[in-house]
């Protein structure tokens, strides 16, 4: 049974359609990345999962139950970190951490102190004196110090410095190793790439892509830049999975060699990499530079295209000619 199961979820606020048929499945024990640009409905989806907001239509199951009807029982088993943390101005950070933990049903004191150390958070300051990043840390410590099955994190690292982000990632890995399920909403791709096994990408309240990170990375492309000893092999531009092929012949003086050199650059899908390398090797490779596939590149392509996300088929049709 998945920890989170969302089908055809719709939520409107007045005339705004915040969620427009969202699908989301999070398997028990995985760290699931929930990606989308600002205003795409990530926070609304999380608030529905928390039972704070009621769904208009569609099915929502959280740990096997309806989150609106069974909010209290479910909340004993999960912890939540909002994207914009609001604290009580006259309570200290330590008081807030304890209070939230106790109201959830208990707090692991040992983990509380190790997390405070890890995040270098001073728990004696009053809520009103914390900076944005430190407010975030208060909420993170309160959530991570609880013994819960599921963590719902809404852009939890906005406001954290890079060192703290690294600490946070390490924490997430530890949580996952302990069998906890994590739904991590984010638009920071490096973070998602570093910790998530599976991701769901949404835009305008709809799921545009979901799957294992490895599969999605296959959808993204490796950038190759080569210097070849002769003209590029016949039909390189027509090969399935090769895009944006650019060829430039460099005169010997520029290339710094006695023979003519061809400068070739292209984007290659994971599946076509082997074939491309075999072909160019026959011509003779002088130098090779490659940039590994990033989710970023995939992400940008998803949001640049206003209608649909890229699929392997459409890419094949739109590939650039040499």
């Amino acid at each position: 049974m998945p920890a989170i199961l969302v089908r055809e979820l719709v939520k409107t606020f007045g005339s705004t359609r915040a969620l427009d048929g969202l699908d989301l499945t999070v398997q028990t024990g995985e760290i699931h990345g929930f990606l989308g640009p600002n205003g795409s409905g990530k926070s609304t989806a999380l608030r529905i999962l928390l039972g704070l907001v009621r769904a208009d239509s569609g099915t929502v199951e959280l740990l096997g139950a309806n989150p609106f009807k069974h909010a209290v029982e479910l909340h004993r088993r999960l912890a939540y970190v909002p994207g914009d943390v609001a604290l009580w101005p006259n309570l200290s950070g330590g008081e807030i951490i304890d209070l939230l933990g106790r109201m959830r049903g208990g707090l692991n004191q040992q983990r509380r102190s190790s997390l405070l150390e890890r995040f270098q958070l001073d728990p004696t300051k009053k809520g009103r004196s914390y900076s944005k990043g430190n407010r975030q840390k208060v909420a993170l410590v309160a959530a991570l110090a609880s013994d819960v099955e599921l963590l719902l994190l809404d852009e939890p690292t906005s406001g954290l410095d890079p060192l703290m982000e690294a600490s946070f990632r390490q924490c997430l890995m530890d949580e996952s190793a302990n069998g906890r399920t994590v739904l991590l909403s984010s638009h920071i791709l490096a973070e998602v790439e570093a910790v998530c096994e599976r991701v769901t990408i949404i835009r305008s309240g709809r799921t545009v892509q979901t799957g294992a990170l490895a599969d999605l990375q296959q959808l993204s492309r490796t950038f190759l830049s080569l210097q070849l000893a002769g003209p590029p092999p016949e039909g390189l531009g027509q090969m399935a999975g090769v895009h944006d092929l650019q060829v430039e012949s460099l005169p010997p003086a520029v290339a710094g060699s006695t023979d003519a050199v061809t400068q070739v650059s292209c984007q290659v899908e994971q599946s076509a990499l082997d074939g491309v390398l075999r072909q160019v090797a026959q011509v003779g490779v002088i130098s090779l530079n490659s940039q590994p596939p990033t989710l970023e590149e995939l992400f940008l392509r998803f949001y640049a295209d206003p209608t649909t996300g890229p699929t392997t088929e459409t890419q094949t049709q739109t590939q650039t000619q040499a």
């Binding site: 200290s92 008081e95 209070l99």
Partner: peptide, 23 residues
């Protein structure tokens, strides 16, 4: 200036009622 507070909550600060009273 805002003074600093305790590093942890008192034992009775454990319910929404206690929080409401505190506020």
């Amino acid at each position: 200036q805002t003074r600093s507070g305790p590093a942890g909550a008192a034992a009775r600060l454990r319910s929404p009622m206690a929080l409401a009273w505190r506020l």
